[in-house]
Design a binder for these strands. Structure first.
Lengths: 192, 192
DNA sequence: AAGATGACCATAAATGTATTTTGGTCATTT
DNA sequence: AAATGACCAAAATACATTTATGGTCATCTT
């Protein structure tokens, strides 16, 4: 049971964080946008960082929803993996907030934001891990350490989507899918 | 033909950078350690950053040597890959300089150091790339984009050796080799 | 004459200080 | 009982002053 006030505060904070960044957003500003008194905010959140954590939690939940929606039970694990991650990335791109926060981490390294994004990363990895455990149980993929595998799959996605484009031309989404599929599922060895 | 003086300057700079970091090292300090006049340094290097670049170039060369030494022609591509990277990492760990520089990038983000380490990363990737091209030509591994493959192999190594330990227990070197071998060469698919 | 040098300088970084802003509280109001 | 905004300590900012540093070059050495 989430109060109307709390939702308004979170929406206001989300908008302000997305436009000005976390550090540059003041509690007074959030209160003003949300049209509540400053003190009211502290009825629902203990600190400014707590507001950010609440928002990130919401985002993680939405990401899980988006991913789950794009998963089709009949399709293979890797197909679903690509579809889900593609959905998440699209969602993330739409959501100016995460872009702004990533930028803030790079430029300012604001500790609260670093922590928040790291916890988001962990939640995504945990989600992937649960799907991997599932796929192993169903016999869809080989036995492997699900935590390490989830970590590496997530990192490879970030490497291809974010890091590669810092040095060369960005890779089209289609190619990212193909590459993850090739390296992770098939491997480089020549299977006879 | 490298002059004796130039070598002395580079050695002095290497030692000082390794102990105090790039930013905290002054030209006067380098001159003092190298036992040359300050002006002498500027006969061989145009700027302070130029000294760092020279040192990094030397390291890259040494890394290539170490890697090439640990490669055994008869062994498989992936075995040699692991041996070479393992050799480089050991070399790097011994070399306090690179550790200090990585630390400085994380903590201070000193631009000159960021640039220098990035160029080192590119050189390592180029080296791996050349070995991959070789392996494809010899028919040891499947056809693939050598540049992307080199990039991803390097990144996976960094992910496993550096990033994983920020969150969980560090992985033993042996396991890193096994993991890279498993994911990159074999893949998760169940090959019959 | 060619190589080497350190006093010297402009500028950048560090330090100190005054001023403003901001996260968080709580007595008062609704 | 819920909501509020004036209020406060602490942090961030801005500014002035001092110090440190990268790089130069006239002079010195060989």
């Amino acid at each position: 049971m989430e109060s109307e006030k709390k939702r308004k505060i979170m929406e206001a904070a989300t908008r302000s964080f997305a436009i000005f960044g976390y550090k540059a957003t003041t509690i007074d500003q959030i209160a003003k946008i949300a049209k509540v008194g400053k003190g009211t905010i502290y009825l629902y959140f203990t600190t400014k960082e707590d507001i950010l954590k609440g928002i990130i939690n919401d985002i993680a939940q939405k990401m899980r929803d988006v991913a789950n929606e794009s998963i089709i039970p009949d399709h293979s694990f890797i197909t679903n993996f690509n579809a889900a991650l593609s959905g998440i990335v699209e969602f993330r791109e739409k959501h100016e907030l995460t872009i702004k926060l990533f930028q803030e981490v790079k430029e300012l390294g604001t500790p609260a934001v670093v922590d928040a994004l790291q916890s988001l990363e962990i939640e995504i990895c945990d989600f992937i891990e649960s799907k991997i455990i599932n796929a192993i149980e169903r016999g869809e993929i080989r036995e492997c350490n699900p935590k390490i595998t989830a970590f590496l799959m997530f990192k490879m996605y970030i490497n291809l989507v974010n890091d590669w484009k810092d040095r060369y031309e960005p890779l089209p989404k289609e190619e990212v899918s193909n590459l993850i599929n090739m390296y992770f599922m098939e491997g480089l060895a020549k299977h006879k």
